[in-house]
Each structure stands twice: as C-alpha cells, then as structure tokens.
Design a protein around this nucleic acid. Structure first.
Lengths: 295, 295
DNA sequence: AGATATTTGCAACAAATAAATCATTAAAAT
DNA sequence: ATTTTAATGATTTATTTGTTGCAAATATCT
C-alpha cells in the first residue's frame, strides 16, 4: 500500500528535519497513500491544506526529480497492492481462525462499527436533528454527565467552548457541580448524558433543572431510561458490546454529531469562532508539533 | 478490481454493438483496469493503439458524461482493492451529494463506522495487542490526556478503577496533574493519549516520565506524531471526520478495546473486582433506575 | 537587537490534458 | 450507383497540470 518502503521510511525518518509545511504535506501523503496515486497534485495539496508548490518541494526534499516521480512510486505500490488484494484477504481469514487476542479486539471494533451504522437509521437521524434544533435555540447549554458519562459530557462541552460561550459544564470539585444551575431559566437547555446504570446524581440534577423550567435534552440508552420522562428531546444510543463493560463509543459519536450539526447551523460564525480559538491557543503555546525542550 | 461491476458488465454486454475502434479501446480497458486509474487518457490511448478521442467516445458510449467519470470509477475500484473491505462503505460516504441536515449526520456516522472497521486491520490489531501486553505488565498505569483527549484518558482511568487500583489519572486542579508522577518508576507505565494538535503539556509530562524510566504507551494519530519517538508501544487511530472538528470516537474505541483486553487477561479477577465495585456503589446509592424523589 | 538564512505564499509559465469541432473516409440503404 | 449514415482521424480550444521565480514573512544565529 505504501511505496517501496524506502520512501515511506525515509519520510518518517526525515520528518523531523522538514519544515512545518513540508511536514503537513508529508503527513497527508503518509496517511492517504492512495490519493497520491489517484488524484492530481493540486488536489492532494488542497486536501492537505498546503500550497501546490509544497508538494513539489516535498518530492525534491526526498531526493526525487519531481512530483511525478513521487506519484509514480505510489502508483506502482498501488498496482502491487491491488493485485495482491485477494492474497491479503486470504491472509486475514487465515489469521482469523486463530481465535486469539486480536480476535477479541477485532470483534469489539466491528461490533462498534455496526452500532454506529445503526445510528444512521431514519429514526435516529430524526432524533439527532430534533435534539440539535432544540440545543440551537437555547441561550445557554448546561452539560451534565456523571461517572462514565463524564467523558462524553466533557467532550461536548469542550467542543462547544471552542465554538462560543454558551456552554456550561455541570461539574466541579467537592460536589459543587450543580451550583451553576442556580441561574438557569426556561430559556436554557440542559443536555444530560446518562446510560445504564444511571447515576442518581445526574437524575436529581436533571429533575431539579426541569422544575426550574429548563428544557431537557438527553443522550441515553433506552426508551425506558428514566431520562425519557424528563426530556423534550431524546437521542438513543446503544451501549452493548462484546466486553465486560458498556461502551461509550456510540454516545460519544452522537455527541460529536450534535456538535457538528450545531456548528453547521451557522458556518461563518463557526469558522470565525474557531479561528479566534486558534489564535488564542497559539498565543498561549498550548500546542506543539514536536517534543518540547526540557526547561 | 473492476469498477462497480455494472460498468464492466455493460462493456462486455455492449461489446458487440461497438465499432471496431471502440472495441479495441474497450478491450484494452477491460484487460488493464489499473492503467485507466493510474495514467492519463492519452497514454492509455497510446497503449491501446487508438486515438485519444476514441477513449472519450467510449466513455460517452457507456452513458458517462466523459472520460473523467470513467477514470473516477476505476480509481474508486482500485481504492477498494487497495484499502480493504471497509472502503466499500467509504465510497457511499464519498458519493454523498445532498447536504440535508440528517445527511450530514448520517455522513459523519458512516465515516466513523468505516474508521472503526479500519482499526481491524492486522497492523492495528497487532499494535493493540502489544500495547495491552505492555500495560498488563505495569505495576501502576498513569493515564494522561489533556484538552480534547481528556475525555478518553478519563474514561480509560474510570474503567480501570472499576477493575482495580493500578490506575492513576494525571489530572488535577491548578495544574497539579503531573504531581502524581513523583513516585513513578521504571516498573510503571504511562498511557498518553494525544492527537493533533498535540497539547504541549502532555508532551512535556510524557518526556519527563520517560526520563524517569517510566515506560510509555501512547494512543495517537500518526506515525509522525511526536509521541512515537517517546513510546515503547503506539496505537494509531484516525481522527479525520466530515466535520469541523477532529473526531475522538476512534480513540475512545481504542481505549475501550484496551480496557477489555486487560480485563480479559484475568477473567476471574475481573469478575470479582466488578462485583466488588457493584456492591460498593450499591451501598452508596450511586445508581438509580427511576427518577429519585425530591428531598 | 540586528543580520542572515530559511521558509512560505503567490503568481506566472509552459506543457499536457480532455473535450469539442470539423473534415474525411468507409459502410449501408435506397 | 448514388445518397445517406455512421465511424474515424485530424485540429482546435479551453482547462488543468506541475514547475519555477520572486517577494514577504519567519526563524536562526551572532
């Protein structure tokens, strides 16, 4: 799938010696080898969010005469890969008969994959859309998820924070998480994430919020979840998995979809907000592309 | 290896209805499907000993708008072959042309589903297994994930907590998260989750830990992620999605798989630990199955 | 802090591409 | 045998391609 190996390895080895733009280009090439073979350089550059010239420069950096040679190598690799496809599948099947450790993993992952596909059913999509609409109309969105659901709640809140300042995460040290609801009104919405077993604390807070007139939108796992009775909108997601634990992956996926639907609602505003966040984080040196020097 | 089947069959079926030149072109296309995808029309024409215009005419004869569409079909077919079975769905995703609200959602979900399937490839499974092995052998597992990766880190830690007391979450108020590493030794392992853009803080802490002799296992998004250089084991997961944001869903899935592999390692102990946790939480009235009465 | 080198974005270029147009040739039908 | 039709080849045109040169921006070093 990758070209003659030497090229791929060379790219990885010399990655650190590349400039930022070159790295961005190289990274895309590494992660989308088929594209290099199948689409034009300018298009690859567009996908990689890089100037066309950078692709040429990458090729030269790797010691090739030009981009065409780079493409040729990837094309050759793809030819082989395509031919050997049958063999590859066969290999996979053979390995599958071992029933080993990686079988467990593969089983789980495929199960999760199927569950995500099930979320594409019309009913789920309707619920997602309705939930997004409801969240959209809120002045503030309070986000609540305790115990295992904390991960989803926090992630939703984090993304919403990048988008603006409408989100409030109901969590805090010493059990003070619910305090932020003090000034919540009927113009606001509470997004609750809770799956079985339902954390009592989350249900209590949700009920309290509802009593204050706050609209409730929930992500939960069943039509008979206690949250359904409280909520204006419910998105259901499966949690069963071939493992000891319930899975949160579908719930997280749902959360990400909601975030994106909200972002899509006003693209210009979203883009502006994201750019603003980018600049802010850049000034703070929040991010790094290499291992920072010890200080 | 051949395009959507219908095209290949159509060519064979209508072969007799073609003119001599068209037949010559069609014959070459049928016998060299890869060339159609990988080289220009003129070159294909030259190899087929046919006028360039004939290739265009062949495409139109098959009811396609132009030769580009023909090439696109063959390129898509080659992608499938090269990329594996998951790519079939990807094609559906790529073809998504309408952008209704629920189309966006279903698009995203299908994309995520495909990514999870890709994690089932042998290489990924090997990495997962190796990472699980390394974590298994650790005395303590420190878990680190900042910013967006916090969700994954926390979830991993949460599940590990249910399983025993080997896990330490490197997070805390006032930037004290790293303090727990004070007593970390070479018997311990640090699990770092970080995806692009990489939080500088996470890299710093990981580097510090490594300097202390702590083994590093990481979940990250690329072969050229700065974490790779530090880590004994790396699990790669995709983060691209048809949305404004990077997706964490595959990373979370990887984390859940790791948890489960660790749990599977010693089933009796796992079951006992889970039962113990159940009892504990029951006594604390942590969970509820119905809306609790207001107090 | 200033000087130097490197990196990056932009625009222009020539070459090549796919498609459209027209002229010529071969085949079919009257 | 002549007209009509379809097929083929040559030519032209508007894009698109990969590359290069140059100026602005950025980083690096003294």
């Amino acid at each position: 799938m990758q070209p003659s190996d030497s090229l791929r390895e060379q790219m990885i080895a010399q990655y650190d010696a590349m400039s930022a733009q070159l790295q961005q280009a190289a990274r895309y090439v590494l992660e989308h080898p088929q594209d290099v073979a199948l689409v034009s350089m300018r298009e690859v550059a567009r996908h990689a969010a890089v100037q066309p010239a950078t692709m040429t420069r990458l090729a030269k950096f790797l010691g090739l005469p030009g981009y065409d040679e780079l493409r040729a190598q990837y094309a050759a690799a793809l030819r082989e890969g395509g031919d050997g496809f049958a063999a590859k599948v066969q290999k996979r099947v053979d390995e599958g008969s071992e029933r080993g450790v990686s079988d467990i993993a593969s089983h789980m992952l495929q199960g999760l994959s199927v569950q995500l596909e099930k979320l594409c059913e019309p009913d789920s999509l309707r619920r997602l859309e309705a939930a997004a609409d409801r969240l959209k109309s809120a002045r503030k969105v309070y986000v609540l998820g305790l115990r295992s659901s904390h991960a989803v709640a926090w992630h939703f809140h984090y993304v919403m924070t990048l988008l603006g300042e409408r989100s409030v995460h109901l969590d805090g040290p010493g059990g003070t998480g619910g305090d932020a609801l003090i000034r919540a009104t009927s113009e606001d919405v509470l997004l609750v994430i809770s799956i079985k077993p339902y954390a009592a604390g989350a249900l209590e807070l949700a009920q309290l919020a509802k009593a204050q007139g706050v609209g409730i939108v929930s992500i939960t796992d069943s039509e008979v979840s206690p949250l359904v009775a409280l909520s204006e909108q419910v998105v259901l997601c499966p949690t069963e998995s071939d493992s000891f634990f319930h899975t949160l992956t579908p719930a997280l996926a749902v959360s990400e979809v909601l975030c994106n639907l909200l972002a899509e609602f006003d693209r210009p505003k979203t883009l502006e907000a994201l750019q603003q966040a980018d600049e802010h984080l850049l000034h703070l040196n929040t991010y790094a592309t290499a291992i920072p020097r010890r200080r």
